[in-house]
Amino acid sequence: MHSITVNNLTKKFGSFVSVDNISFNVKEGEIFGFLGANGAGKSTTIRMLCGILEPTSGDALVGGFSINSEPDKVKSSIGYMSQRFSLYNDLTVQENIDFFGGVYGLSGSNFRERKNWVLEIANLKGKENLLTGLLPGGIKQRLALGTAVIHNPKIVFLDEPTSGVDPISRRSFWDLINQLSEEGTTVFVTTHYLEEAEFCNNIILINAGKLVAEGTSEELKTNYINHKIIDIECDRTVEAMEILEKETFVLDTSIFGNNLHISVLDDVSAKKSVLALLEGKHSFRIRKIDTIVPTLEDVFIHLIEKG
């Protein structure tokens, strides 16, 4: 069951094509990672999916409603949190929650229940009267998420929710995202941190408005890079790199910490050649030589440079 279905979505601003004919599906209850460089068209796509920007062509069903013909129904079935944690800094925690609750038309016991839930996830019980502007970034971020989903939407869009937040807060924020997903909420998230993308069930990557890759993080790492990466641990690393660079079977070399990474087409024969060359001919001491899975960063840099 898909909670978001995107069909040939395109947005042009004058002659500039911001989003170029993209299509993808998001499954119900999954955490869906939406990646891309700044200006790749991420925010434009999110704004269209939230029903606040009309597409030039194409359509999308969000929570079963068309963004073209039923934007109001789309709006009432989603939550949205932007990178700016759109809370009112000059209002207290309580007043912010009351405002967003009121804006989403909550009332009575349901509202009290949800208010409690927001205070709980933000660790702000008993601190309802603090000014929001005085809260630390991590807490503010949790409060922003809480208010964004105060009406218990089926789908929530998070636009770079962790930018400018410390690593510990980021980690506990992802615990919260997982919790939402386990409760059945579909989470659509954009991020710049590739280690965060590893937490997503499915990922798509867009570049210059076009969709360039999609799949799980494992699929991306195996399907989109043709050559193999070999990790070598040896003495005199720089010298070893200079020697290997001259060989024709080595496509690329780079130093990762104390180790040496080389890209090759055939990792089995390459390993043999490296051992013969370094240990046999130049008497290096090789402690370890392994074929490794490329990181998401390797994949994305590869894809974007290619594109």
């Binding site: 709006k75 700016r84 989403y104």
Partner: peptide, 14 residues
């Protein structure tokens, strides 16, 4: 300026 208008726009407020 503060981006809070976006938050209101995506809600059901017209």
């Amino acid at each position: 300026e503060r981006g809070t208008i976006e938050q209101i726009k995506v809600s059901s407020v017209n």
